[in-house]
Amino acid sequence: MFTSFKRIIKWGLTNFWRNGWLSTATVSIMTLTLLVITVLLMLNVVANVVLANLQNKIDISVYFKLETHEEEILQVKSQLERLEEVKDVSYVSQNEALIRFKEKHQDNPVLLQSLEELEFNPLEASLNIKARQANQYASINQFLESVYYKDLIDKVNYMQNKDIIEKLNKIVVDVKTGGLGLSALLALIVFLVTFNSIRLAIYSSREEINVMKLVGASKWFIRGPFFVEGVLYGLVATIVTILILYPLFYFLSPKISGFLPIGDVFSYFKVNLLSFFLLLLGIGVILGGFSTMIAVRKYLKE
């Protein structure tokens, strides 16, 4: 049993080496597959970060009438915080609003002058609300419009931002579903291409399989070396893929970091190198082993 196992491994390695050209071709195709998979993964990561950043940038503000007491505003705040949709509420008092206003317009002495001349602070206190999801602003707005708060609130800027928020909302949904669908489709295509090239490689061995059968080799003794070869395709392709990606990200990273909110692509890759390797190895080995098994089965049948 153990001897047979050893022989199967030996023949798998020998065949991989002797079918040099065929192995190179198959490994190349599988490498391309793994590269495509990696790029898809990276794109998904980047897209998610971009979307999260965008979502973080939008909020709605509630402005309270000047005569509203601070306790009342804080009460509204704590009520809002209890809502499930609300991720974060921050309170900007009248004073703070004034400080911010002055900072923002410090180059505009006329404006500041006229502000000084007023005997009261004309800026309203406000609450800044961030929702967990872009599509939840509508319901938060509804909550604010309910009768109870109507008297305190001067205005909610939801209506002004409504279009942007809804557009963004649509983009988030589109990118997520579209990206997922496209990734799945591309992944399926590259899988099929690899599967087919392995089947072709084995098709060229069908006469050999027949001869082995005729000289009395059992099915698994015939199948084994092919399986080893298939797994080897996956292993070598994974190593080649990593060897291509490592310098690629190293040189490309400084150039693309500016566009991306993800920071340093290379260090992200480096930190996750082991998981990348294991993931690609898993995909490669399963794809290689599985494809050879299916292909050989066809020629093993009597």
Partner: peptide, 9 residues
């Protein structure tokens, strides 16, 4: 190969 397939030592 014929001997290996037969599991000979």
């Amino acid at each position: 190969f014929a001997m290996e397939a037969a599991g000979r030592a």
